[in-house]
Design a protein around this nucleic acid. Structure first.
Lengths: 111, 111
DNA sequence: TTTTCATATGATCATTTATTCATATGTTTA
DNA sequence: TAAACATATGAATAAATGATCATATGAAAA
């Protein structure tokens, strides 16, 4: 059940070239954000302009609560930021990384 | 509970600029691949060179079965390919998209 | 200050998912 | 052909996750 005829030196090599457990975990956590249709829709909606929670809920035709829960998750990853204007809270993309990352993935799918 | 003082025209605008339901779903499905530590480790291990299932299991210190199940999922997304050499099956990255996509995400985390 | 509106959040439930175990498939070697 | 090896796969289980409902918070308007 061990690796076959391969010198274990090669396995050690690959092993120690891996990023740290924490780095790998953080990366996976970040990608989890994109790995859900609802969150993907929210991010795409924000491509256009900043939107408040109500508007996002309207655009996705989902409940305010569901959107709010998802926004909380997305916010943790620092992919979006928000600002308050009275009782309304506007969300927007934090930077261009979102577009770039999604763009790369979209490219893969086109082939 | 509807969007506040915002003309619904803006909501319609954003709505119809969204990619199709299927495109959004496929994108999310692709990102799900990266959204798990084990699969992330497998992909990183394959950055170096092609590896057989046994080797990957050794590198990640996990069971052959667990790795095989995950490879099946990754293979569906066409991110990896494989070739058979006798009883050994070698897996490798299908193209450079994996590196690019992960690279972009890693950049986001570095800030 | 009471009401209303926009958003956030805790609990719950149903679904999805990752691993394990047992076993099947397919290839090589004795 | 039988035994050994590498990989794949189905069933089962525990843990994670997303939506809903009810309710809390916080700000503006009446």
């Amino acid at each position: 059940m061990n690796a076959p005829n391969v010198p274990s030196a090669r396995i050690d090599q690959v092993m120690c070239d891996l990023p740290s457990e924490k780095q790998l975990f953080d990366l996976a956590e970040l990608f989890k954000i994109f790995g859900d249709s609802t969150r993907m829709k929210i991010l795409y909606a924000l491509f256009e302009s900043e939107l408040c929670v109500c508007e996002i809920a309207a655009v996705l035709n989902m409940s305010q609560s569901a959107i709010s829960h998802q926004l909380r998750i997305i916010k943790q990853s620092k992919l979006v930021k928000n600002r308050r204007d009275g009782k309304i809270i506007y969300y927007s993309l934090a930077d261009d990384h979102v577009k770039t990352i999604i763009g790369m993935a979209a490219e893969h799918l086109e082939e």
